[in-house]
Simulated assay, not measured.
Amino acid sequence: MKEKSASVGEMGKSGENEIAIASEELIGNIRPLIEQAKARVAQSVNSGLVLLYWQIGKRISDDLPAESRAEYGAKVVELVSERLAAEYGKGFRRSNVFHMIRFAEAFDDAKIVQTLSGQLSWSHFIEIIYFKDPLQRQFYTEMARVERWSVRTLRKKIQGMLYERTAISRKPEELARQELEDLKEEDRMTPDLVFQDPYLLDFLGLEDTYSERDLEAAILRELERFLLELGTDFSFIARQKRMTIGDRDFYLDMLFYHRSLRRLVAIELKLGSFDAAYKGQMELYLRWLDRYERRPGEEAPIGLILCSEKNREQIELLQLDRGEIRVAEYLVELPPKGLLEAKLHEAIRLARGQEELCSYQSKWH
Results as ranks from 00 to 15, higher is better:
Met189Thr: 02
Val45Glu: 15
Phe250Met: 10
Ile19Gly: 03
Arg326Ser: 05
Lys184His: 14
Glu147Ala: 02
Glu216Cys: 09
Gln314Phe: 07
Asn96Gln: 14
Leu206Val: 05
Ala328Met: 02
Leu201Phe: 11
Arg262Cys: 06
Arg69Ser: 09
Val41Trp: 07
Lys111Gln: 12
Tyr163Ala: 02
Leu33Glu: 13
Leu64Cys: 05
Leu317Val: 10
Trp54Asn: 05
Arg188Leu: 15
Val45Asn: 12
Phe256Lys: 00
Ala266Tyr: 03
Glu212Lys: 06
Tyr210Cys: 03
Ile126Thr: 12
Glu186Cys: 11
Leu79Pro: 01
Ile158Gln: 07
Asp133Arg: 07
Lys241Leu: 14
Gly57Asn: 04
Ala217Gln: 12
Asp321Leu: 06
Arg137Glu: 01
Leu206Thr: 04
Lys58Cys: 10
Thr166Val: 07
Glu356Cys: 09
Pro336Lys: 02
Leu284Gln: 13
Ala39Trp: 08
Glu341His: 11
Glu207His: 06
Ala104Phe: 03
Ser47Ile: 04
Met254Arg: 00
Ser95Asn: 11
Trp122Tyr: 14
Ser5Pro: 09
Leu228Thr: 07
Ala266Gly: 05
Ser61Gly: 10
Glu24Cys: 09
Phe203Met: 02
Leu201Asn: 03
Glu147Cys: 01
Ser235Met: 09
Ala85Arg: 11
Ile34Phe: 12
Thr190Cys: 07
Leu230Cys: 00
Gln55His: 15
Gly297Ile: 00
Leu334Thr: 03
Gln319Cys: 05
Arg93His: 10
Ile129Cys: 04
Glu185Trp: 13
Ser123Phe: 08
Arg295Glu: 12
Gln281Glu: 14
Met143Arg: 02
Asp63Asn: 15
Leu183Lys: 03
Thr166Met: 01
Glu78Phe: 09
Arg221Gly: 08
Leu344Ala: 03
Leu64Pro: 07
Ala70Gln: 13
Phe103Gly: 01
Lys184Arg: 15
Arg93Thr: 06
Asn29Glu: 15
Met1Phe: 11
Gly160Lys: 11
Gly89Ser: 03
Tyr330Ile: 02
Phe131Gly: 04
Ile19Arg: 15
Asp108Asn: 05
Arg291Tyr: 13
Leu339Gln: 14
Val194Cys: 00
Glu341Met: 10
Ile21Ser: 09
Ala66Tyr: 08
Asp202Glu: 07
Arg59Pro: 03
Arg145Pro: 01
Met11Leu: 14
Val45Pro: 06
Glu329Lys: 04
Ser5Asp: 15
